[in-house]
């Protein structure tokens, strides 16, 4: 049968910063082709296609239940593929090769992670599940 794509609405203007992204105006309706865990979703709108931040999108027909996963306080082991320095106070700074626990995977691509007793947001695209190849 036909593939029915989910439609989302832009909640704010978005100006693309790289070639593979797509710009949007608030209120634009886009079809979501692929949702990546990185927080970037591949969308199409009329004759345009590209990646947009999931945080700029909301479902057009109102979510029947939140798409977000529940937190997992036991933590899921991940390895830091790429270091990152916290830019905001609720983020965490980590170095490549460190092992941490992912507590909450969020659609916007910033996951809540724990290292020892410190928790904070970290870009999911810089993390790799323990034991998974790249």
């Amino acid at each position: 049968g036909p593939i029915i794509l989910q439609t989302y609405r832009a909640v704010a203007d978005y100006e693309k910063n790289s070639k593979t992204e797509m710009s949007m105006k608030v209120g634009d309706v886009v079809d979501v082709i692929e949702k990546s865990e990185s927080g970037w979703w591949f969308c199409q709108q009329k004759n345009k296609r590209g990646w947009v931040p999931a945080v700029y999108l909301e479902p057009t027909d109102g979510p029947d239940e939140s798409e977000e996963q529940e937190p997992n306080y036991a933590g899921e082991l991940h390895v830091v593929r790429k270091g990152y320095t916290a830019a905001q106070e609720d983020e965490i700074t980590l170095k490549e090769g460190e092992t941490i626990e992912v507590i909450h995977k969020l659609l916007d691509g910033w996951w809540v992670v724990r290292k020892d007793e410190i928790t904070g947001y970290y870009p999911s695209m810089y993390l790799q599940k323990m034991g998974a190849e790249n």
């Binding site: 945080v55 870009p123 695209m125």
Partner: peptide, 22 residues
């Protein structure tokens, strides 16, 4: 064709929209 996502992390949600588990 779906090219690779951007290499930089996406922007953070606005502070008031952030879901932080207790």
């Amino acid at each position: 064709t779906i090219k690779h996502p951007p290499t930089e992390p996406p922007p953070r949600p606005p502070a008031e929209a952030r879901k932080r588990p207790a």
